[in-house]
Design a protein around this nucleic acid. Sequence first.
DNA 1: TATTGTTATACTCTATAACTATA
DNA 2: TATAGTTATAGAGTATAACAATA
Lengths: 140, 140
Amino acid sequence: MNMDSLSIFVGYNLKRAMAVVQADLVRVLARHNLKLGTFTVLAAIGDAPGIAAIRLAELLGIERSNLVAILDDLGRRGLITRSASLTDRRSHELHRTAEGAAVFQAALADVHDHEAKVFAGLTTEERAEMIRLCQKLWAT
Amino acid sequence: MNMDSLSIFVGYNLKRAMAVVQADLVRVLARHNLKLGTFTVLAAIGDAPGIAAIRLAELLGIERSNLVAILDDLGRRGLITRSASLTDRRSHELHRTAEGAAVFQAALADVHDHEAKVFAGLTTEERAEMIRLCQKLWAT
DNA sequence: TATTGTTATACTCTATAACTATA
DNA sequence: TATAGTTATAGAGTATAACAATA
């Protein structure tokens, strides 16, 4: 028995693993002038064109107030559009522009490479298992 | 095939899982006036009494500059001591006080409860597997 | 010259409360 | 009244550069 007090906790190991993964991902996304938040939002809007900000925030598990700066950033750069809904003028429909889709696709390719590199020590089955276990924690 | 662009990535699922775990842990530690950083440092000093700050930072994977405020906090509250090393007066030996050990033990019990609750949806084997997979990513 | 602890700084992420315009 | 988007703000974590004391 030579265990320390921390590494017996799942949460601590999750955090240390996350730090390794994030450090590389942040570096990769920076090449596209994207941050974790902007990349994630760009992906989600592409998956659900026309989605309202409040739904997007729910989907990504972030506060809607924190989404605003991300949308401002993407909008300012012409990567997304915000158009008032015709049926409810409180909500805005979010869409990716052609340039937004192009920037996302370029970044996506690099993110795939990043995952392949960072998780090279895990087999395909282990990666799938990790996704499955993580989703048991956060997915509905 | 009804997958979205993000949930196929291990990193994204790691992050979402982490968010769930951390939210609860932060709440639990707050009951002991501890933050993630102070709890972690308190644990590590207990495991390695007399450790120097620079070694502690390496051990926990944090910047030594960011450790200072944590040690200041714990020191101010009388939970740790910093004494200059006799062999190298640049470095300080870190020790937990009796009160520091008591505060840690009380928090530790709650953290165990927290883990049991948050990972209740995972079997014992799944938790062990998650630790194993995470350690493949960050441990030497 | 190199290392330890420290200070200063800045940026990201996150959480909460309150405002506005609409419903 | 309740909801969508927004603003403001504060806390926590993180990364970098530079300094003083010591090796």
